[in-house]
C-alpha cells in the first residue's frame, strides 16, 4: 500500500497511445488547430493526467476564444473598422498569436504531468506519421468550408509566407462573405 501524490498520473487503458506534449505542439505548426487541440485533450485522458480537466477546458477555451476573436475581426472588417491590407493582417496576426500562446500554455501544463508519467516509466509513442498525415490533410480540412471563421479556427499558428497566404485567403473570404451578406 502506498500514498498517491496529487501530481501523479492515474492508470488508463489508453497509455499505449500517449505522445510527448511537444508532438501536438508541432501539430499546430505543421497541421492546424483542428489536429493539435483535440490531440492535447486525448493525450491528457490517455496519460491519466491529474490536470486533465484543466487541459480539456483549455482546449475548449482555445476553440472558443479563437472563434470569438475570429468573429470579432470578421465583424469589424465587414463594418469597415478594420481596413483590408496591413490592418487586417495585423488583426489576424493577433489571433495567430493567441492560438500559439494558448497552445504553448496547454503544452506546458501537460509537460508537467508528462515528466512525472515518464519518470515512472510510462510508455511513449512516436507520432511522426500522424504529424505527416496532418500536414498532408491540412488543406483538405481547411477547404471543407469557405467560411472565413472556419478557416481562422482550424488553421495553424504558422509563420512567414504561409501565414500571409492564409491572411490573403481570409481577406478574400471576408470580402466575399461581406459582399454576399450585403
Amino acid at each position: 500500500m502506498t500514498y498517491h501524490i496529487a501530481d501523479e498520473p492515474i492508470e488508463t487503458s489508453l497509455r499505449a497511445y500517449v505522445v510527448r506534449p511537444s508532438t501536438p505542439l508541432f501539430a499546430i505548426m505543421l497541421g492546424g488547430a483542428w489536429l493539435s487541440w483535440p490531440w492535447f485533450a486525448f493525450n491528457a485522458i490517455a496519460m491519466g493526467s491529474p490536470t486533465r480537466r484543466k487541459e480539456i477546458a483549455l482546449c475548449l477555451a482555445a476553440f472558443l476564444g479563437t472563434g470569438l476573436l475570429g468573429a470579432l475581426v470578421i465583424a469589424l472588417a465587414r463594418a469597415g473598422v478594420i481596413g483590408s491590407g496591413a490592418p487586417l493582417r495585423l488583426a489576424l496576426l493577433a489571433i495567430v498569436t493567441f492560438k500559439l500562446t494558448i497552445t504553448y500554455y496547454i503544452s506546458m501544463v501537460q509537460e508537467r504531468t508528462f515528466h512525472v508519467y515518464e519518470y515512472y516509466g510510462g510508455p511513449v509513442r512516436a507520432a511522426g506519421a500522424i504529424l505527416a498525415a496532418g500536414y498532408l490533410l491540412n488543406d483538405l480540412v481547411i477547404g471543407l468550408s469557405d467560411n472565413p471563421l472556419w478557416i481562422i479556427i482550424v488553421s495553424g499558428g504558422v509563420a512567414g509566407g504561409v501565414s500571409s497566404g492564409i491572411a490573403g485567403g481570409i481577406s478574400g473570404g471576408i470580402a466575399g462573405a461581406g459582399a454576399g451578406g450585403l
Binding site: A86, R89, L90, L93, V96, T97, L100, T101, Y104, Y105, M108, A159, G160, S163, S164
Partner: peptide
C-alpha cells in the same frame, strides 16, 4: 515561450 512568441510577433509585424 514568451521570448519565442515575442520574436514571432515582431518578425511577423516587420514582414507585414
Amino acid at each position: 515561450v514568451a521570448l519565442l512568441i515575442g520574436a514571432f510577433v515582431l518578425a511577423q509585424i516587420a514582414i507585414i
